[in-house]
């Protein structure tokens, strides 16, 4: 059998997905035996012009991580979509917008004003900002255009498979790699490397359906190790989040923040969290509900931590 042609790319991302791939450790040698890698900026030296020279569908599988933040990310998404038979949204940024998607609380000008103007460590009294075109004595320099709104990969190009996680856990990556090599991928459009049900199904903590009279912040309590964190008043996004991670955060005594995205039947992860929270609040009147709900300090940044661009809201109006 001919070796698979693989491409790995990153748009607006942190590189944690690349490290998750490298965390295959010696199994990376099995990947190398089954596939040739044609693009992987973090690890190998190929240039964009190499990718532009490939014929369409030259690549068998592209693992694309990162959100689409600027015109370069969009260009590479479209280029690699055209050059790849199978496009995989790899990691939560590509699938849902991820942490970079939190920038949808602001627009281009709002981000620039903070980054290039207001931060205490910035000295930029002449107000220099990135320009898409800038003329230096030797010629013209160009930069990508920074968009107002972060998009997911699937909002930019057609995506065949979604492999979420921040980052995806290594054993799930390995299972998906094996399925790719064996040609045993599920129907296009599927999520892969995930569990069918929520993080709660993987969580070993005891749930007693108790009511919550107050929410607390993680630094205010030492959580009991065997009891459901949400029932202890700690906001945990497990009920609204797809499993597959093995409930790693809750096993480390930290509440889930939703990186695997909404479960199969849920459209909006934050709305599902609101529903889960509404069902456990112990209050008899509106004022009582408000008192409890007001203890949730950052609903947007908590319920949409990894998925604001993918949500029904997509962004904050500014």
């Amino acid at each position: 059998m001919a070796k698979l042609k693989l491409a790995l790319y990153w748009a607006a991302t942190c590189g944690g997905c690349e490290v998750a791939v490298l965390d295959l450790n010696e199994k990376i040698l099995d990947v190398a035996a089954a596939a040739d890698i044609y693009l992987w900026p973090v690890a190998m030296d190929y240039k964009y012009k190499d990718a532009e020279a490939w014929h369409d569908k030259f690549i068998d599988v592209c693992l694309f991580n990162g959100a689409i933040r600027n015109s370069e990310g969009e260009h590479l998404a479209k280029l690699l979509r055209a050059k790849s038979k199978v496009m995989v949204a790899f990691g939560s940024c590509a699938c849902f917008g991820g942490i970079p998607g939190l920038a949808n609380v602001a627009d281009r000008e709002g981000v620039f004003a903070r980054v290039y103007g207001e931060t205490p460590s910035t000295d930029n009294s002449d107000g220099t900002r990135p320009q898409t075109s800038f003329t230096v004595p030797e010629g013209e320099l160009t930069l990508p255009y920074f968009y107002d709104t972060v998009k997911t990969l699937g909002q930019t190009v057609p995506v065949d498979y979604f492999l979420p996680g921040c980052p995806p856990v290594t054993k799930q990556i390995w299972a998906v790699v094996q399925a790719i090599v064996a040609g045993q991928l599920p129907p296009p459009g599927s999520f892969v490397g995930v569990a069918e049900k929520s993080v709660c199904e993987e969580c070993p903590r005891v749930k007693e359906e108790k009511k919550v009279t107050a929410f607390v912040r993680p630094h205010q309590v030492i959580p009991q190790p065997e009891k459901c964190l949400l029932e202890q008043g700690l906001i945990c996004c497990g009920p609204a989040t797809r499993g597959g991670c093995g409930a790693q955060c809750v096993n480390a005594n930290m509440p889930c923040r939703g990186c695997y995205g909404p479960t199969e039947r849920v459209t909006d992860q934050g709305a599902k969290m609101l529903s889960a929270i509404a069902s456990i609040i112990d209050a008899t009147d509106e004022a009582g509900v408000k008192k409890v709900v007001d203890q949730i300090v950052d609903p947007l940044g908590t319920f949409y931590r990894f998925g604001l661009p993918n949500s029904l809201l997509t962004r904050v109006r500014v």
């Binding site: 607006a12 370069e72 939190l102 920038a103 602001a106 903070r114």
Partner: peptide, 13 residues
Amino acid sequence: PELRGFERFCEGR
């Protein structure tokens, strides 16, 4: 050629 804007979206968290 990349910026994500952590300086902005960490505000309010």
